[in-house]
Design a protein around this nucleic acid. Structure first.
Length: 581
RNA sequence: GCCAGAAUAGCUCAGGGGUAGAGCAACGCUCUCGUAAAGCGUAGGUCGUGAGUUCAAAUCUCACUUCUGGCUCCA
């Protein structure tokens, strides 16, 4: 069977499972209202409006009822009904009635029934429950979900489940979930002592511990070096600014909800910055600029603060204070195409350097409500499209999905577990240059608006760090590892030689530690392993005599009797090449 | 912000209307050791915060805070 066929079959199974679950839930709550229940990646869900809140215990009951229904060997029967018939049949189901009323005139209204339970549904479904396996599904969780995703509509109860063709696939999926849990950056972050957040000090605000900061410094050092190589200048700007900035940029009109509230001082209102751009624009406006000066590529690791709704905060992935690896490019119209191509190349180079090789692009174009001249939009969109194609990237287009101020490319990477993360973004801005009345003097002596491009390659350092932690499961490649080498003497008698090796490695600039605790060697190895340190050096009599080291890698492999200087060269090479080990 | 769940020692967790428990970690002592946990001991908690019920609250109730799973949001 081809992959597509297989996927289609799984979709049908999952969707059918959702119907079976709906029937099971209605057995318990005959007066319950059903909303929608589609198949999703790895499973299905169904939304209900029920007289009471579901509890975890209910899932077991529902599961058993589902198994019973499956074993009854029902068939899924499709029937086509008129609108009136449908309205009549579902008159006790207000959510279905709403859906029926919205179905376009002339379209078939189909109903699938499986014995007692019938559901408005486009289908398709498997022929009968004999195609479902009572042992290869699992109900996973209960969640709240707004009807039609609208926060003004009723909150429904959603049950998520996963379903597969056979119990083995289910087991594999559940194992994958466990793996995900093991790699969770919040868990790894605590185990490796990388970062913390504090209830008393403010939710969504990240504290980078020494070991986490080592990784950040490695990232930032690389980031600066690459920006220097790519023709960027660096800026530093303040963290707060007077309301004038945000009134002018327009953020106070359309983004005030996302900002930390004002601070009043000396009869002026200050705001913590949610964006760096107005600050960069202030620097631009300090001088008059000629077309000969452009382009400017100005980068800043700019820390911004945004009020994210409390329920949306999540570890490092969604926070209230974060540092963007931000840059703004100001250029003339005829520079746009080259600049965009360069930015995209740079972006890909950065992401690949961190081990992300599976990258997809998303192009978002002009929405209905937009500022700026359509000709500008066209030039911008074309430059984005050309760049993506020049780099041979797979891409999707979200027609009309751009922000009102300009089109953009987002890059998403797939991590080691196949999950997608949006990291890079390249966005045109036709709004702020206008509002801040930016200009440059063109060849013909006229004052013209520069093009402005926002771009972030890693997104935010916090989020990027979170993604990195999960991508590597905490086992960072040598160049990023907070502790690269652990020196472990076999016994206290060999501490002198171990000390010597330690000094040599320290001198070479490596992040090396010396475990001189009272633990036995075995315990030291275990501790180093738990910290996912790439290299463990086991040093005893043999090594001391030969000026050598015995190397244990965190993947369990061993190499004994490596001359010390060879090991130094080897680590230098791994760091240089950004290799795993 | 909304729905649901959770909060007990640094960490992982047990317990539960009548003075708080384990393992790991920490600290001290002993052991001097060749590739994933040596042994013994010591210390450590107003049971998230505030209020209420009760003779008595960590336990029951309410509010709040934070976290978790979702929804929404992410111009």
């Amino acid at each position: 069977m081809s992959k597509d066929n297989k996927d289609e079959k799984l979709q049908m199974i999952r969707h059918s499972m959702a119907h079976v679950m709906a029937e099971a839930v209605l057995q318990i709550f005959p007066e319950g209202k059903v909303a929608i229940g589609p198949a999703i990646d790895n499973g299905f869900y169904y939304d209900f409006d029920l007289p009471r809140s579901l509890k975890e215990d209910d899932l077991e009951d529902i599961s058993q009822r589902m198994q019973a229904i499956i074993k009854e060997g029902r068939t899924f029967e499709r029937s086509v009904v008129s609108r009136d018939e449908a309205l009549n049949q579902f008159k006790d189901q207000p959510y279905k009635v709403e859906l029926i009323k919205e179905l376009p005139e002339g379209e078939d209204i189909s109903v699938y029934s499986q014995g007692e339970f019938a559901d408005l549904c486009r289908g398709p479904h498997v022929e009968g429950t004999n195609k479902l396996n009572a042992q290869s599904f699992k109900l996973l969780s209960i969640a709240g979900a707004y009807w039609r995703g609208d926060e003004k509509r009723p909150m429904l109860q959603r049950i998520y489940g996963t379903a597969w063709t056979n119990p083995k696939d289910l087991r594999m999926y559940l194992q994958q979930l466990e793996e995900l849990e093991k790699r969770d950056h919040r868990k790894v972050g605590r185990e490796l002592d990388l970062f913390s957040t504090h209830e008393e000090a403010g939710p969504g605000l990240v504290y980078w511990h020494p070991k986490g900061a080592r990784i950040r410094v490695a990232i930032e050092d690389f980031w600066r070096e690459e920006h220097r190589n790519n023709g960027y200048e660096f800026l530093f700007t303040p963290h707060v600014g007077k309301s004038w900035l945000w009134e002018t940029s327009g953020h106070l009109d359309f983004y005030a909800e996302g900002m930390y509230p004002e601070m009043v001082m000396d009869k002026a209102n200050y705001y913590a910055k949610p964006m760096n751009c107005p600050f960069h624009i202030m620097i631009y406006k300090t001088n008059k600029h000629s077309y000969r000066d452009l382009p400017f590529r100005w980068a800043e690791l700019g820390t911004v603060y945004r009020y994210e709704k409390s329920g949306t905060l999540h570890g490092l992935m969604r926070v209230r204070g974060f540092t963007q690896d931000d840059a703004h490019i100001f250029c003339t119209p005829d520079q746009v195409e080259d600049e965009i191509l360069e930015v995209l190349r740079f972006s890909l180079h950065m992401l690949r350097s961190f081990g992300f090789t599976d990258i997809q692009a998303y192009l978002s174009t002009m929405p209905e409500k937009a500022v700026g001249d359509p000709a500008q939009w066209t030039l911008a969109e074309e430059s984005l499209r050309k760049a993506i194609e020049a780099e041979g990237l797979e891409y999707d287009v979200d027609e009309g999905g751009g922000a009102f101020y300009g089109p953009k490319i987002d890059l998403k990477v797939k991590d080691a577990l196949g999950r997608s993360w949006q990291l890079s973004t390249v966005q045109f801005d036709f709004n702020e240059p206008e509002r801040f009345k930016m200009s440059f003097t063109d060849r013909d002596g006229e004052e013209k608006r520069p093009y402005m491009i926002h771009r972030a390659l890693l997104g935010s350092l916090e989020r990027f760090f979170g993604v990195l932690i999960e991508h590597y499961g905490g086992a960072f490649p040598v160049w990023l590892a907070p502790m690269q080498i652990m020196v472990i003497p076999v016994a206290p008698a060999f501490e002198e030689y171990a000390e010597k090796v330690y000094s040599r490695l320290k001198k070479a600039g490596f992040r090396v530690e010396f475990d001189d605790s009272d633990d036995r060697m075995n315990a030291k190895i275990r501790n180093a392993q738990a910290q996912k340190i790439p290299y463990m050096l086991i040093l005893g009599e043999k090594e001391a005599e030969a000026e050598a080291v015995s190397l244990r890698l965190r993947n369990g492999k061993q190499e004994n009797g490596i001359p010390l200087e060879d090991f130094v060269a080897r680590v230098e090479k791994a760091v240089q090449e950004k290799a795993d080990l």
